[in-house]
Every structure is written in C-alpha cells, then in structure tokens.
C-alpha cells in the first residue's frame, strides 16, 4: 500500500497489476425459504464496471452479498482468475453509508485498517478525502455531514481498502439527483481499472456507468445481457442514442417486473 500523496487521484491501473476477473459458478441462494436463483454462472471481466439491473426483490443485492460471502443458505463457488482468495481482494459499498456515528470522517475511512489491527495510514486517508472534496470535513462526525458528503466518505473508505474487486449495492440511490449525478462521475473515475459490480435499480445509472449491463429477472432469477452504449463511462446522457437505449432498457425492466 502506497502512502504517496499522488496515489489518491492516480488511476488504479497505474499503480497495480490488472484487476483479476471474478468467476461465479453454480450460485444458489435461498432467502426466506424461497429459492432466489440456482445454478447461476457469471464471469465479471477484470478491470471493468458491470451493472446489474433488475426489479426489486429479484435477488440483485443477494447475489452481491453471496459474492461478498455474506449470504446465508448459499452454495456455489466464487473465485478469482488469478487464483488468489476472494475475501481479501474485495471491498463492499452499500446503499447506506454505514458510517460509524462516533468516528470522524477520517477515522471512518480508516475503519478497515483499525478492524484488521493494521497501522492506519492517516496521510492516505486525508488525501483520499481531499481528493473527493472533503478536506475540511476530515475531523467532522457523520451527523455534521450532508447525505452526499457521507456517501463520499463511504467512497473514500472503499478506496482506502484499495481492493481490485469492488461490490456496490445501489450506492447512490438515497441521494438527490444532482448529488447522485456528480458522485456517479466521481466513482466511475476513481474505480477505473478495478473489477466492479454495481447493483442498481436505475436504468440511467447503468447506461451511464456500465461497461457491461446485466438484467437479473425471473423466478428463479436468470441473467440476461443488455448491450451497453458505446464509449467509456461516465457517459453523457445527452449523447445520441441514449434516449433509445433508455427506452429499450425500460421496456426490458418492465417485462422483467411483470414476469415476477
């Protein structure tokens, strides 16, 4: 782990070997006595942002939790293409910021290090916060921060972990439209080069950020590929063809919801 002050804004690929692919095989999860999916296979290409869309209740978050090793009553395998163990390679960011209310923004960023008994790299935490526009907020507790600021602290905490695999569960859904738009661009920029799985219920978010878009639908749920728009994320929603892509994706989601 580098304590170089420049590392905060440098791209992941500049400082790390290419992120491995994540391979899921035969995933099966039972939730509340109901089989959400079984025999699910999925490979997330290394270094790319995959967006997972689907109607609520279909098991998007559960699939994410399964990969993170948090699902109960689950079977199947998750492995990395480079053969290393999965758990130490992934970082998890949820819909809620999950900041500890008794810690300052900076100490929240350092939480992982504290929990693992490592020496916290305060300079790196501060430079990550500064890079996300939170230089003045480092010593403030979460209650003093706005929703957007809190989620940026959560992003800084995720980045501090410096993992090649990042799992995000609707991380922007509780923010207002303007804040969300800004944070999507920031996250896409900072997560570039990592293997990211982003669960979302917002088709626009998937069109804006996804280098690959997957639709989870049906009972038990199955995955379907949706062609992503051209160009690197974060994409301009005003671009030609975005409107059609959005309409097509909405129609697929609608069909998936009716099939629930």
């Amino acid at each position: 782990m580098s304590s170089n002050m420049d590392s905060a804004s440098a791209s992941y690929t500049d400082t790390h070997p290419p992120a491995p692919a994540l391979e899921i095989a035969g995933a099966a999860v039972v939730f509340d006595g109901e089989e959400l999916f079984s025999g699910l296979d999925l490979t997330l290409e290394g270094g790319r942002i995959t967006c997972l869309l689907g109607p609520s209740g279909v098991g998007k978050s559960t699939l994410l939790r399964f990969i993170a090793g948090l699902a109960e009553e689950a079977s199947g395998t998750v492995r990395l293409s480079d053969g290393s163990a999965v758990a130490p390679k992934l970082a998890y960011m949820a819909q809620h910021d999950l900041l500890l209310p008794w810690l300052s923004a900076r100490d929240n960023v350092l939480l992982g290090a504290r929990l693992r008994g490592q020496t916290p790299d305060i300079a790196r935490a501060e430079s990550l916060l500064a890079d996300l526009g939170l230089a003045d907020a480092a010593t403030l507790r979460p209650a003093k921060l706005s929703g957007g600021m809190r989620q940026r602290v959560a992003l800084a905490r995720t980045l501090y972990e410096d993992r090649p695999i990042v799992l995000m569960d609707e991380p922007f859904s509780s923010l207002d439209a303007v804040t969300r738009h800004g944070l999507q661009a920031l996250a896409a920029e900072r997560l570039k080069g990592r293997t990211v799985l982003l669960v979302t219920h917002d088709p626009l978010e998937a069109l804006r950020l996804g280098q690959r878009i997957l639709l989870l639908a049906g009972k038990p749920a199955q995955l379907r590929e949706v062609a992503p728009p051209a160009g690197p994320p974060p994409r301009d929603l005003q671009a030609v063809g975005m409107g059609e892509a959005h309409a097509a994706l909405m129609a697929s989601l609608q069909a998936a919801k009716e099939a629930q």
């Binding site: 939790r65 090793g69 948090l70 758990a87 992934l90 998890y92 809620h96 939480l111 929990l115 693992r116």
Partner: peptide, 12 residues
C-alpha cells in the same frame, strides 16, 4: 449493515 461491512473488511 455495519457488521456486514466489518466482515467484508476482514475484521475478527
């Protein structure tokens, strides 16, 4: 949620 987060961070 915070307990899950701690687990993914490798906390004992």
């Amino acid at each position: 949620g915070q307990l899950d987060l701690a687990r993914t961070m490798g906390a004992s």
